[in-house]
Design a protein around this nucleic acid. Structure first.
Lengths: 294, 294
DNA sequence: CAATTTATCTGACTAAAGTCAGAGATCATG
DNA sequence: CATGATCTCTGACTTTAGTCAGATAAATTG
């Protein structure tokens, strides 16, 4: 079998993005501001206001950061305020002119993205590939957070999950035919809903559907294709268990379908035991239970 | 349908690779040489020897390039020679020490790549995604070149092509059962074989199988998944036609299978007409012909 | 409340990158 | 063979980024 050296392929990728990204970095979108100042403005525009936070984020020396801030201040783009509780700290805010300037950078960045995506015949496939690469690079920075199951991120995950079930189940899948948990069952104090994010992109979710008692069900465990294989399902399940414990739930149950072997494998390997059918939902083939020990 | 803004996804990707690539750029692999000098050494190591060529490639001012070269020369890493035909020009070559230093950079780059790929649970999927992104970025730099069908690149394409046919044909595919053209039929003066490359990665091929007469067959048209949708098949076919003309071939034929609708669509739209079966190969369902006009 | 720690800023640097106007040698061309 | 173009180099700059040792003020801690 003739294969191309994986390392050569990786390095080809690096060359390609270095050129594409490098072109971005040096001139920094051609607004006549050096890269350092532009990065700082961008950090403030993103809502970072604490000077030390900004320094950490950009990896700047305190002297350099201070001088760059002073520069932006002289240009009237930011103002420095005192921190309400700690007078040593400074809070940076954009002025009206700063907001305009930041918006101009955003517009240029977006245009660049649109131009690139628009000129490609299959932007969906391209974006999926970009998601996968970005998730691989940032796989140590995936964060889990409880959110409302009706938030945009949660709905995005759930729709992707339903679409995937419809694709994978022999008999197809319609949420309405399944026991669709009320959103309120997956919100504290009855339950919880957890979404995983990788730098702003939702890449997985899990729901804890409670009834007020000591038994709850784990529902809607999903990991985005671009984040599979990173151990995220395991993390999500652990987070669901933690949430359950904090809700004084002692027993978890779940059901699943034979078309989801990865999930079944995960349950078998993380302390779940198979039990008898406990509902009359038409889709599941397997039923599991796990007793939690605080 | 809840979707995540494509532009946001693109920008997430940019952030991820900027960090990854940026980390590379600033310290430049920690060999104690500033980025500019390291880039120059790298360009020379890649075989660029003309000073003006190097300047263009790296986008350097002539003064800066000159000084950086002088620096490398003082360190004994390169020597400057006169151009044989134009005494104004300079030729840069690595010394023995320069070759060692370049090799050290290569090794570090490769290690970085290996570490990244090795730490990912599914490097194949990751590499495919990286190929796709790199091909999208470099899609204007895909080059076509005639090569021997037994070269590594050609064999890589052919094996990928056979594997894909085996996947897509209902009845599977075995080269041996098909009319496997002799390699010599796809080499001048009888025929030709063309491989498309995108920065070193073979991303497509096409063969022209001649018999010495005025009729030849087009075989093995393939485009890598990472380069589909970029119009590459059309370019490859045009190149095959050019090669045919240069071999004084006036009529081209080809056969194809119903499982390859993209190909059939392409032939129908580029001047090919369907004709009767002209061989007893077990796989094809459709037969086409095209008369060439010089 | 004194000692220590923390957060930011200033001054005085260095290194790297880049710009620009010539100088000098060489080539191409009428 | 004179003239203008081309290629590389040097000198004299500027800008950007980054480092580091204090200075200053405020918070924390024993």
């Amino acid at each position: 079998m003739t294969t191309i050296d994986p390392v050569a392929r990786f390095r080809r990728f690096s060359r390609a993005v270095t050129m594409e990204v490098g072109a971005l970095d040096t001139s920094f979108l051609g607004r006549g501001r050096p890269l350092g100042a532009a990065r700082l403005l961008n950090a403030v525009g993103q809502g970072r206001s604490d000077v030390s936070d900004i320094r950490d984020y950009l990896g700047l020396d305190s002297g350099l950061a201070s001088r760059l801030l002073r520069g932006l201040e002289e240009d009237g783009l930011v103002v420095t305020l005192r921190h309400s509780r700690d007078a040593r700290r400074r809070i940076i805010e954009l002025t009206e002119a700063g907001r305009r300037e930041f918006a101009a950078y955003e517009r240029l960045s977006n245009q660049r993205a649109e131009r690139f995506l628009g000129s490609h015949p299959n932007p969906d496939a391209l974006l999926e590939a970009m998601d996968l690469v970005a998730s691989a690079i940032g796989r140590d920075n995936i964060s889990l957070a409880e959110t409302n199951p009706e938030s945009t991120d949660a709905r995005y995950c759930l729709e992707a999950y339903y679409a995937e079930l419809a694709r994978r189940f022999e008999e197809g899948f319609e949420v309405a035919r399944s026991r669709d948990p009320e959103a309120s069952d997956m919100v504290r104090p009855r339950g919880a809903f957890i979404v995983a994010e990788s730098d702003g992109l939702p890449v997985g979710c899990v729901g804890l559907k409670g009834s007020g008692g000591q038994i709850a069900e784990v529902k809607r465990l999903w990991v985005a294709p671009c984040a599979r294989g990173l151990g995220l399902a395991r993390h999500l399940m652990a987070a669901a268990e933690d949430a359950a414990l904090s809700l004084s739930i002692t027993t978890l149950r779940l059901d699943t379908n034979k078309a989801l072997p990865e999930a079944i494998h995960l349950y078998r390997n993380t302390g779940w035991t198979e039990i008898d059918r406990f509902n009359d939902d038409p889709y599941p083939d397997f039923f599991f239970e796990k007793r939690l020990t605080p």
